[in-house]
Design a binder for these strands. Structure first.
Length: 156
DNA sequence: TACGGAACTC
DNA sequence: GAGTTCCGTA
């Protein structure tokens, strides 16, 4: 881990506010991208789904298993990767996710969008802080941080 | 494998 | 609104 990552890991936990399910009051049901982040957060699923490559990029290493777990959560015993991936594709227009072309089973989160969904008042796109953070991301201060660590740093 | 329309459900 | 199911297309 890089220096900043180790500080963040030792001092703070990743804030739930970045993706808490309660913040979508309209639909009580768990959202797929919440579920994906949930799996990504737990080390026991690293053989199934894991952060890999660019910031926000993750690979579904075992599509059948991810689909099975998702089906379990939603009580949809006939869930499969074909159906799950259709749901992921609906996130493209919403700008929550996009596909990493050429890389099999690889998608990428748009984290500024993910935070905006839960905390629209932050309106990062129009804040000077967002611009400063962009500059920060361009630098080499935190080259090896996972997206959640990067998010954490943005709000330190 | 990956995409996106269409009908359907909750 | 957020998927689920099914399917034609590349």
């Amino acid at each position: 881990d890089c220096y900043l990552c180790s500080i963040v890991h030792s001092g703070f936990a990743f804030p739930d506010w970045a993706y808490k399910p309660e913040s979508s009051p309209g639909s009580r049901q768990i959202q797929l991208w919440h579920f994906i982040l949930e799996l990504l957060q737990k080390e026991e699923y690293q053989g199934v789904i894991a952060w890999q490559g660019d910031y926000g990029e993750f690979v579904i290493k075992d599509p059948d298993e991810v689909a099975r777990l998702w089906g379990l959560r939603k009580c949809k015993p006939h869930m499969n990767y074909d159906k799950l991936s259709r749901a992921l594709r609906y996130y493209y227009n919403k700008r929550i996710l996009h596909k990493t072309k050429g890389k099999r089973f690889t998608y990428k989160f748009n984290f500024s969008k993910v935070v905006l969904i839960n905390y629209p008042i932050l309106d990062m796109a129009n804040s000077p802080f967002f611009l400063a953070q962009n500059h920060f991301n361009g630098g080499s201060a935190a080259p090896d941080c996972s997206p959640e660590v990067r998010l954490q740093i943005q709000y330190m």
